[in-house]
Computed example of a mutant assay.
Amino acid sequence: MNQNLSSYRIFYTVANTGNISKAAKELYISQPAISKSIQKLEESVGCKLFSRSSRGVVLTDEGKLLYEHVSEAFETLTMGEEKLKRSIELGVGHLKIGVSSTLCKYLLLPYLKEFIRQNPHISISISCQSTNDTLKLLEDNKIDIGLIGKPENLKNIHFDFLEEIEDIFVAAKDYLRNLKARGIQKDHILQSSTLMLLDKNNMTRQYIDDYLQENQIIIKDSIDISDMDLLIDFARIGVGVACVIKNFVREDLENGTLMEIPLGFPIHKREVGFAYKTTTKPSKSLAEFIHFYKTYR
């Protein structure tokens, strides 16, 4: 396109009004400026676009051909402006959230349920992966916000604390009874059992590995599992000892389905919360969500 949009706007307005004087009033520019713009456009396309009549100007055959496409373009622009205006009025937007499947189920869903009820025109996309992967997506601007365990390095990341989580080891009663029958003492359960942990790419797993190493607990037999729900299910049926988040098995602990393994050295609690980049201006949808979770109870 050799001409800028304003030239086609002038052409479109003159064609609609059929009169340079009327077009000048509508566009708030002088008649000579309109005539000059039309002349430059005609020189650019290599043909006459208007012919003069007693009432003003009329499109030539070539002008009519160009007008068909120009009018379609401006109608599309007008439609886009109207849709944008309606979307702003309705609060239409898109929010991309990163979260692990575990935190999504147990922590994020209650927030989303109420947020969607209050903001039905904001669509939600959720990427489920580990905290490490969520931080990478944040860094690459592929998500707006993440629900994560608090990382050690918060460079360019704003972290809003949500709650503390506590990692514990649990097993079914029958599994512990069998260990006891084999003469396994309470302080050697972890070393003598099949230990079920999240896979090594998970921040929780890295945290637990550090705990085991610091306390010189050597694991003989372990199973890596990608999903905490599966860890809990396997523990319930007696596959082994699972490392889980205490809040997520509270009902199992209360009804006796699972038993907490006593530890000589407790695992320190961790913080989880919402995180977003400080180097990028929040979109309207993200700003709405941030305001929501800060006031939600």
Rank of each mutant, 00 (worst) to 15 (best):
E163A: 04
S101H: 13
N156M: 09
N255R: 15
L147D: 11
R55T: 09
C128F: 08
M259H: 10
S51A: 10
I88G: 06
R55E: 00
Y12V: 00
K246T: 01
V241G: 05
T134P: 10
T280W: 10
T102W: 03
D221S: 15
V241S: 02
E251Q: 11
I148N: 04
K36F: 08
Q129C: 14
Y293H: 12
L109F: 09
A33D: 07
C128G: 09
I148F: 08
K186Y: 10
E75W: 03
M196G: 10
K25F: 02
G146M: 05
L66N: 07
I184H: 00
L108R: 10
E271R: 00
I267K: 00
V249A: 02
Q185Y: 14
N19D: 14
C47R: 11
R117M: 03
E62Q: 04
N132D: 09
T13K: 10
K281H: 06
K200H: 08
Q185S: 15
I245G: 03
R117E: 09
I184V: 15
D224F: 07
L138E: 02
S37V: 10
N119T: 07
E114V: 13
R52L: 06
G240M: 02
I38Q: 00
D133P: 02
M1S: 15
L154H: 03
T204W: 06
N141I: 03
V244S: 05
Y111M: 07
K142L: 11
V99M: 03
K150Y: 02
D224I: 01
S285Y: 00
V92R: 15
I245S: 01
A23M: 01
T204D: 13
V92H: 14
R236D: 03
Y293G: 03
A172Y: 06
Q3L: 14
T194H: 10
M1G: 15
E43S: 15
Q118K: 12
A275Y: 08
L231N: 07
D187P: 01
T204C: 09
A235D: 12
G183P: 03
I225K: 02
R86Q: 13
K48E: 07
A15C: 05
L5F: 11
I165Y: 09
D167T: 11
V58P: 06
A24C: 09
K142Y: 09
G63H: 01
N178S: 11
M203A: 09
T194V: 05
L27H: 03
L112C: 05
I267L: 01
F289I: 03
Y12P: 04
I88D: 11
A242Y: 03
V70S: 13
D209T: 06
K200A: 10
V272S: 11
I122A: 04
Q118C: 05
K220E: 13
I20V: 12
G80E: 13
R250N: 04
T280G: 06
E82R: 13
N132K: 10
V170L: 09
E26N: 13
V99S: 13
I34P: 02
K220M: 03
K269R: 13
A171Y: 06
D199V: 04
P266Y: 04
R86D: 10
T78M: 14
T280E: 11
S54I: 12
Y296C: 08
Q129F: 08
L179M: 15
Q206C: 07
V241I: 13
E62F: 02
I261C: 06
E139F: 12
K85M: 08
P282N: 05
L198H: 09
K150F: 06
